[in-house]
Simulated scan of single mutants.
Amino acid sequence: MPSIQVRPASLRDAKAIAEIHVAAVQDAYKGLLPEATLDSFSVQKRQAFWREAIDLCEPQVMVAHIDNEMMGFVGFDRSRDKGTPSSTGEIWAMYAAPQHWDKGVGLALWDAARDGLQEEGCTKVTLWTYLRNERALRFFELAGFKRELNTTKTTEVGNVRLEELRLQRSLV
């Protein structure tokens, strides 16, 4: 079996990234968000977002693939949270295509993001995830992330309010 490769995303990857993003959100957030909200996620809108992100390198975007079959992506950069030191990085987004869940894609993407953040001089990394997103919480806790107390905030997605929690870990 060939191993998962991770490389920087190119503009040509934007559509595949958007397709993975939409499919993963629709699968992972079943039961968290109403069906109508999940159905409203658009590949076209996500493609425009990821094209711009790749073009501006904000965030940095890496893709995981085997034999050019796209399996997942990660976007990472400096933390967007107010008051965070410049040495704090953030995983802005990380998704694997549902058919590739539990195959090592997340670990390959996390390794690439960690290396990229360390190269940028980051000594700590954070991320936000929904409190009820048990799959993501389990993955990131296994990767050494800890829940930050008193960071829970409420976010509105569509017309649903969800609790988000920040996780963090050291990079040194």
Results as ranks from 00 to 15, higher is better:
residue 103 K to V: 01
residue 23 A to R: 01
residue 84 T to R: 09
residue 30 K to Q: 15
residue 134 E to P: 00
residue 141 E to R: 10
residue 105 V to P: 01
residue 117 L to W: 08
residue 115 D to M: 03
residue 164 E to L: 06
residue 35 E to A: 14
residue 117 L to Y: 06
residue 166 R to A: 10
residue 148 E to M: 07
residue 26 Q to C: 08
residue 122 C to G: 05
residue 96 A to R: 00
residue 90 E to K: 01
residue 91 I to M: 07
residue 144 G to D: 09
residue 51 R to I: 01
residue 60 Q to H: 13
residue 34 P to R: 07
residue 129 T to C: 12
residue 87 S to P: 02
residue 58 E to L: 08
residue 49 F to Y: 15
residue 46 R to D: 14
residue 79 S to Y: 07
residue 71 M to Y: 05
residue 71 M to P: 00
residue 87 S to C: 12
residue 146 K to E: 15
residue 116 G to C: 02
residue 113 A to Q: 04
residue 119 E to M: 03
residue 53 A to L: 08
residue 75 G to V: 06
residue 27 D to Y: 11
residue 139 F to K: 02
residue 25 V to Y: 07
residue 55 D to R: 12
residue 156 E to T: 14
residue 100 H to C: 02
residue 26 Q to M: 10
residue 37 T to F: 08
residue 23 A to E: 09
residue 82 K to D: 12
residue 90 E to C: 02
residue 30 K to N: 06
residue 86 S to I: 12
residue 80 R to S: 13
residue 3 S to H: 10
residue 161 R to E: 15
residue 20 I to T: 08
residue 48 A to T: 14
residue 12 R to G: 10
residue 97 A to W: 02
residue 149 L to P: 13
residue 86 S to M: 12
residue 101 W to V: 01
residue 172 V to I: 09
residue 16 A to S: 10
residue 113 A to T: 09
residue 139 F to E: 03
residue 157 V to C: 12
residue 126 T to L: 12
residue 52 E to N: 13
residue 60 Q to Y: 10
residue 28 A to N: 11
residue 71 M to N: 03
residue 160 V to I: 12
residue 124 K to N: 13
residue 115 D to Y: 00
residue 133 N to T: 08
residue 14 A to F: 02
residue 5 Q to T: 12
residue 104 G to N: 03
residue 35 E to W: 08
residue 109 L to T: 05
residue 111 D to M: 10
residue 103 K to W: 05
residue 61 V to C: 06
residue 109 L to H: 03
residue 35 E to T: 15
residue 151 T to H: 09
residue 119 E to I: 04
residue 120 E to K: 03
residue 113 A to L: 06
residue 13 D to M: 01
residue 62 M to V: 11
residue 34 P to I: 10
